[in-house]
Amino acid sequence: MPPWKEELDAIVGARAHGQAAAILPRLQQLDARHPNVAEINYQLAWTCDVLGREAAALPYYEKAVALGLPRNVLAGALLGLGSTLRHLAQFERSASVLRSAQLQFPENREFDVFLALTLHAEGKSGEALRLALEALCDTSEDPGIRAYQRALRHAASRL
């Protein structure tokens, strides 16, 4: 186990108990002692996001992705990066990150929904609604949605 892993796990556990503000300095100290660790940067980004500090989160997300994350963690980092870029009104970059993530993780339908949010923010409401409706039809177990799935798909195709 890497020397930083146990401490990172303990810090992340504290965040789960609503202590995001208190753990940010601990994460920053861990990062200072173990620079260029993708997982630490990802947790820094996530914590900044939880605190509503998207501008501070952005470089941590970018560094975490650039350093390379395990596949199961990368999906969350790309979603966070795309969402953060949307919050910062960097819509083209957000859409690019989320589209890339869709290709890398086609089974993760959350990318469709977050891309729809970005497209809507970008003023592409028709495309956004189409994408959201398709994701809804593909993933919903609701009997009403299932019953009208064909009509919904037809409407989505015309947007």
Rank of each mutant, 00 (worst) to 15 (best):
Y148F: 13
A95M: 06
H154W: 11
I11A: 00
E62P: 06
N72G: 10
R33S: 12
R93M: 07
G123W: 07
L69S: 00
D31S: 15
L98C: 01
P143S: 08
N72A: 11
G76P: 01
E110V: 07
H34K: 07
A156V: 10
E54P: 06
V50K: 14
H154F: 12
R146S: 00
L44W: 00
A57M: 00
C137F: 04
A116E: 06
A155C: 04
R130T: 05
E134P: 06
R109Q: 15
G123C: 02
L103C: 10
T139H: 10
Q149L: 04
V65I: 06
R150C: 01
A21I: 04
L74I: 00
L69N: 02
L74W: 13
G13Q: 14
P3L: 08
E39Q: 11
A95L: 07
Q90R: 15
G80C: 07
H17D: 15
A95V: 06
L115E: 00
G123V: 09
S96Y: 08
Q28H: 12
D31I: 10
P35T: 04
V37L: 10
Y61G: 04
L27E: 02
H17T: 09
N36L: 11
A14I: 05
L30P: 01
K124Y: 09
P35L: 01
G13R: 14
L131A: 03
E54Y: 13
A14S: 13
I23L: 11
Y60L: 01
E107T: 13
A14P: 07
S157C: 07
S100T: 11
A128M: 09
D31L: 12
E7K: 15
L67K: 02
A20V: 01
L8W: 14
E39R: 04
A32Y: 12
D9S: 14
A10N: 15
S125P: 11
I40G: 00
L58Y: 00
W46K: 13
Q29P: 03
H87K: 14
A156Q: 09
A151M: 06
D31G: 11
A155M: 09
A20D: 10
S100D: 14
A89P: 00
W46E: 11
R26V: 06
A20W: 03
S96G: 03
D112K: 13
A56H: 12
W4L: 06
A38W: 06
D142S: 13
R53F: 04
R26N: 09
Y148D: 12
A22W: 10
L119E: 03
S96N: 05
V65P: 03
P59N: 00
D142M: 05
N72C: 08
R93S: 01
E127N: 02
I23F: 04
A147G: 10
M1Y: 12
L44M: 00
